[in-house]
């Protein structure tokens, strides 16, 4: 549930707001409906990870990945554009996961919810 909500809201916000709005969404979503720390982190991580893969591919596939294939050459990495996708998604995932984790931890701090973890 948390995963889906972060995914959908972040997707909509991506057309209107800066990229880091996804962190706010993950934070708030976890704050309101988050259950456990672990679940919250992985929901946030997974949602943004997948969202960013989707957003990147929406642009890159009709482009035959020519831009990504050029940009990867700026990095000291093998010249495979998929690596760039992976790095992008990992960064997004980390931000989403950390934000959701912060959300659930804040909730716990404020409402003193019992956590099985």
């Amino acid at each position: 549930m948390l995963f889906l909500i972060i995914l959908i809201l972040s997707f909509i916000s991506s057309y209107l707001l800066p990229w880091w709005a996804a962190a706010l969404i993950a934070f708030l979503a976890a704050l309101f409906i988050g259950k456990t720390s672990g679940k919250a982190f992985w929901s946030g991580f997974g949602a943004i990870f997948i969202l960013w893969v989707i957003l990147a591919l929406i642009k890159s596939i009709p482009n035959d990945n020519i831009l990504a294939s050029r940009v990867i050459q700026l990095f000291p990495l093998p010249h495979q554009w998929v690596l760039l996708l992976l790095i992008t998604a990992l960064i997004g995932g980390l931000v989403g996961g950390m934000a959701a984790l912060s959300g659930i931890l804040t909730k716990k701090a404020i409402f003193k919810v019992k956590s099985p973890a």
Binding site: S14, P18, W19, A22, W52, L55, A56, I58, K59, S60, L67, A68, V71, L84, I87, T88, I91, G92
Partner: peptide, 9 residues
């Protein structure tokens, strides 16, 4: 790198 406003666009 972010696909919202970064180079992917």
């Amino acid at each position: 790198l972010n696909p919202v406003s970064g180079f992917w666009q």
